[in-house]
Design a protein around this nucleic acid. Structure first.
Length: 323
DNA sequence: AATTAACACAACCGCATTGGC
DNA sequence: CGCCAATGCGGTTGTGTTAAT
């Protein structure tokens, strides 16, 4: 049973490509092209490789005009902007960066850029909670497990906003979400948490007590959704509910959350990059992303700020640019 | 100098999508 | 319209290199 393999695994070489294999593949494709059939290509060339492997090697390494490493600041900005807008659609992001491959950008994001933009912030959040209660510390750990593309995008978005309005992020007693979230962010949190199989109880408390009235701003499309009660939020303090139980008790169907996700994706697509005309009603919330240059300016400043602060590990905290 | 940890990048895997029949 | 092979794509793993101890 199961899937039929694309090639005879037993007679196929795996692992790093040798210079000879590279030369054979490159020469053949440059002379004759792929012939529209990657599966048959290895046999024609006389190398013991899977067709998919040949395709990957060509696209990611051997193809002419491929750039490796040395990402410029402008490329960083584009990657960040697009990641916030569309998430981990690496092929689309790569299409905006001539000479870059999706694999290269993905690796660059996962190993460098993400850490640069998110990793340090998480560390900052955790350090702020030193001295907090055990329950609160557990909540931070829970937040780590929450990390996914959408959540990272939300974090990036919030960070950009807090840079835009640093005053907003100060002076609140909220533990994890000290800044006032704009309605779409509230909605994203609400949606993400309820979709999550293991929602973070602290965030749930926030979104269930503070979120609903903000979410209502986005009506009428969600008038049909019964708002979760504050009692439910209190219960989250006592025990960690599964996301499914929570959804069930909130009286919300799964497809309604998917609508949330779609709307959020659509919203971010409209606001993050300047590819689609802006929705007038929501423009004021994301004016700083209305043009790509504005986003670039912020990202450039942010990147410089990070570099300037990276020498001393504590200085970042004192700047008040966090949540 | 040896060992271990962290990092960067190449390559693989398997699911989703596409297109021909 | 459904089936199936080829291709595309994103997540994950493997491997080589460098830094730290």
């Amino acid at each position: 049973m199961g899937r039929t393999p694309c090639c005879d695994k037993a007679n196929v070489k795996k692992g790093p490509w040798s210079p000879e294999e590279d030369a054979k593949l490159k020469d053949y494709i440059q002379k004759y092209g792929t012939g529209g059939n990657w599966i048959a290509l290895p046999q024609k060339i006389g190398i013991k490789r899977c067709g998919k492997s040949c395709r990957l090697r060509w696209l990611n390494y051997l193809r002419p005009d491929i750039k490796h490493g040395g990402f410029s600041e402008e490329e960083d900005n584009i990657i960040c902007s697009l990641y916030i807008s569309i998430g981990s659609r690496w092929s689309i992001i790569a299409a905006q960066l001539p000479g870059r491959t999706d694999n290269d950008i993905k690796n660059y994001w996962n190993t460098k850029l993400k850490k640069k933009l998110l990793g340090r912030h998480k560390q900052t959040q955790a350090s702020r909670l030193i001295g907090s209660t055990t329950q609160e510390s557990n909540d931070v750990n829970g937040l780590e497990t929450l990390s996914n593309s959408a959540f990272e995008r939300l974090q990036l978005h919030m960070q950009l906003q807090s840079l835009q309005n640093p005053d907003i992020s100060q002076g609140s007693s909220k533990l994890m979400w000290p800044c006032k979230l704009n309605p779409i962010q509230e909605k994203m949190l609400w949606s993400l948490q309820l979709l999550n199989e293991s929602p973070n109880p602290l965030i749930m408390q926030h979104v269930l007590t503070d979120g609903p009235q903000n979410v209502e701003l986005f009506e009428p499309s969600y008038n049909h959704i019964q708002q979760p009660s504050n009692m439910l939020a209190n219960q989250m303090n006592d025990s960690i509910d599964s996301g499914l139980d929570c959804r069930k008790r909130a009286g919300i169907e799964f497809h309604q959350y998917l609508e949330f996700q779609d709307e959020i994706d659509q919203f971010l697509s409209n606001k993050g990059a300047n590819f689609i005309s802006l929705d007038q009603a929501q423009t004021s919330e994301f004016e700083y992303l209305n043009d790509i240059d504005g986003a670039k300016d912020i990202m450039t400043w942010w990147s410089n700020e990070f570099e300037a602060n990276s020498a001393s590990s504590n200085s970042w905290d004192s700047n008040g640019h966090g949540f």
